[in-house]
Each structure stands twice: as structure tokens, then as C-alpha cells.
């Protein structure tokens, strides 16, 4: 009996775990939808800023700005975006691996690095590897808010303008599609110079709308570059949030499926154990009866 009972107990605990993973999958699905909606809603802002930038580049205003100037990298900043919680497959470990590669590269080139990490998982992983971190954020969950991201971005802008950093890389999980997210390293500073609108959509469109600029194209450029940097940084946070939920959804789905398989296997073994036990008992009784006959 002992073996059958042990199997039954295991089966029950696997069932409980499956209940939990199934619930987590559903929660992740709901959160993913919300995060995705936010990410789509935020796209408009970026697109419109890009359109204005194109227009400014189109009129040939002197596109020179401290944020666009590329300097040799002697001091670099790295921002790593991970999750606060685990149970989401390779989401966190991929980011940690990617950031370690980047940090290793800076170290071999003798570049001073300023490391900032968001998410408890990334913080503990980098701490374990003995990497000093200047900033740690744990306040970003599945709904990053612009008001919370903006101060971080402004600090980077100030540091870049003051020459304290020459480059900013963000390591995060880019959301490409629901079945594809990849850990990437993206350089956000210096900004890429805006391309004139004519390059992509033909020169006819450029002539159709002639804008006046108040107070001047240069002054607008001065304002719009930081804004477009902030919106790109915000997009990184949004992408990371969406990807985390997708990763958790997929991980929990496969965990639930796996638990289902395990339960099937355990049931089969339990039934076999029970059957052989019954057979054994019958054999014993029959043996007893045979012994009494003699």
C-alpha cells in the first residue's frame, strides 16, 4: 500500500502546482493584453515626434546638437531592464547574459561604466557576479509610467550634456511579435541624426506641406531631441514590460502542460501499483484457502 499511497500524494501535489501555474498563466495573459494596449497607445507620440523631426531635417535646418555629437567613448552608461519576479522562462537570464557581455566588452576596452539596473532579478544576478551598480530601481512593474521614467532619462541627458558619460546603452527585451522577443542592446545616446522626410517618402510629399517654425527650427530641434530621447527610453520600458508578461505566459503554459503529462504518468503508475497490490492480496487469500484445504 505504501508505494501506491506515495504515488497518490505526489499526484495530488502536482495537481496543486498545475492549478497555480494555470492561474499565473491567466494572470500573465490579462496583464500582457493591458501592457500591449499601453504600448500601442504610446506609439502615436513617438511617430508624431518623428514626423516633426523629419520636417525639420527636411528644411535643412542646421542639424547640430550636443545630443547628436558622437564622441570617443571613455565613460559609458549601461541601463539594464529586468523583471522584479522570476518564473518567466529565460527572460531575466537572457538579459543578464547580454549585459554581462556588454560590460565585459567595456572592461576589456578600459571604459569606465556607470551601471543602472531595474528589477530585483537583475540586481541580485549582477550582485552575485560582483558588478558594482550605481543605481537600482525596483519600482517598475507591468505598467511603467512616463512620470517615473522621465526623471531617469533627464538624469542621463544632464550627464551626457555635462560630458560625464559619452554613451548610453540600454539592455532590454525587445518585443517583436507575440512569438518573438529578443534580448537586445540598444544605443540611445548619442541620438541618431534625423533623416529628411524626402529620403523615405519621395520629394513630392515634402513640398506639399511647408511649415513655419515658431520660434525657429533650431529652437524646436533643441526641445524635441530630449523629448524624442525620453519617448524612446519609455518605449524600452514598455517593451520590457510586455515581453516579461509574454515570457511568463509562455513559461507557465508549458509548465501547466508539463504538469498534465506528469499527472498522467503518475496516474498510470498509481493504478498499476494498486492493481498489483490487489493481485497480491488475492494470491495471498487463495494461498490461505489452498493451505486450509489440505
Amino acid at each position: 500500500m505504501a508505494k501506491a499511497r506515495a504515488l497518490d500524494r505526489r499526484r495530488r501535489s502536482v495537481r496543486n502546482i498545475r492549478k497555480i501555474t494555470r492561474t499565473m498563466e491567466l494572470i500573465a495573459t490579462a496583464r500582457f493584453k493591458k501592457a500591449m494596449d499601453r504600448s500601442i497607445a504610446a506609439r502615436d507620440y513617438t511617430n508624431r515626434l518623428a514626423k516633426i523631426l523629419e520636417n525639420i531635417a527636411g528644411v535643412g535646418a542646421g542639424v547640430a546638437h550636443p545630443l547628436l555629437e558622437v564622441r570617443p567613448t571613455t565613460r559609458s552608461a549601461v541601463l539594464v531592464l529586468t523583471g522584479n519576479r522570476g518564473l518567466c522562462g529565460g527572460y531575466n537570464s537572457n538579459i543578464v547574459r547580454q549585459s554581462l557581455a556588454l560590460l565585459g566588452q567595456w572592461r576589456s576596452e578600459r571604459v569606465e561604466t556607470h551601471v543602472a539596473v531595474s528589477g530585483k532579478r537583475g540586481i541580485s544576478a549582477l550582485k552575485f557576479r560582483g558588478i558594482p551598480m550605481e543605481e537600482r530601481y525596483t519600482n517598475f512593474e507591468d505598467k511603467p509610467e512616463f512620470e517615473a521614467v522621465a526623471p531617469i532619462g533627464r538624469a542621463y541627458l544632464a550627464a551626457y550634456s555635462a560630458g560625464e558619460i559619452d554613451r548610453l546603452d540600454v539592455v532590454y527585451t525587445k518585443f517583436e511579435s507575440i512569438s518573438r522577443q529578443s534580448a537586445v542592446t540598444e544605443m540611445l545616446l548619442p541620438l541618431k541624426a534625423p533623416e529628411p522626410a524626402g529620403a523615405a517618402s519621395g520629394p513630392i510629399q515634402l513640398a506639399s506641406q511647408e511649415y513655419d517654425f515658431y520660434p525657429s527650427a533650431e529652437s524646436i530641434l533643441e526641445e524635441i531631441l530630449p523629448a524624442s530621447f525620453l519617448s524612446r527610453l519609455f518605449k524600452c520600458f514598455l517593451d520590457a514590460a510586455v515581453s516579461e508578461q509574454v515570457a511568463r505566459m509562455v513559461a507557465m503554459k508549458s509548465a501547466s502542460e508539463n504538469a498534465g503529462g506528469l499527472i498522467k504518468d503518475l496516474s498510470r503508475r498509481y493504478n498499476r501499483a494498486r492493481q498489483s497490490q490487489i493481485t497480491g492480496e488475492i494470491m495471498e487469500i487463495l494461498g490461505g484457502v489452498e493451505a486450509l484445504k489440505q
Binding site: 499601453r38 497607445a41 504610446a42 502615436d44 507620440y45 508624431r48 509610467e145 512616463f146 525620453l230 519617448s231 519609455f234
Partner: peptide
Amino acid sequence: RCVIVTPEST
């Protein structure tokens, strides 16, 4: 048409 866009949404 008047549209107001913020980083989070329209």
C-alpha cells in the same frame, strides 16, 4: 481636427 498626444496615450 484636434488631437492631444502624451507619451502614454492619445
